[in-house]
Amino acid sequence: MFVSNIEEIPGKTITTCYGIVSGSTVRAKHLGRDIFASVKNIFGGELKGYTELLGESRDEALDRMKSQAQQLGANAIVNVRFSTSSVAAGAAEIYVYGTAVTVE
């Protein structure tokens, strides 16, 4: 599965377009991590737990998008965009969408 955030997959030609595909996930860390993060917030620095959380969420959202594209019969996704929002406090919500295409 080719994924890019530009209009095309370089070196390939797009033959068929299937429309928008998307993947989303909402994940949270357990309370202990939340408490640790708020303590860490006093001193500053990287919040490893949350970095990890966002990474996991992004991977899962990408996987879901790819699986959707596969179901449509596409072999590439172009013009991919990530967006985040916060619906639940303390949870990472990742949304990724793009255009499913077949390239040759």
Partner: peptide
């Protein structure tokens, strides 16, 4: 779920 961590399925 927020308490235990993991995927919050009810918001999906």
């Amino acid at each position: 779920r927020n308490f235990f961590g993991g995927t919050i399925q009810s918001y999906e």
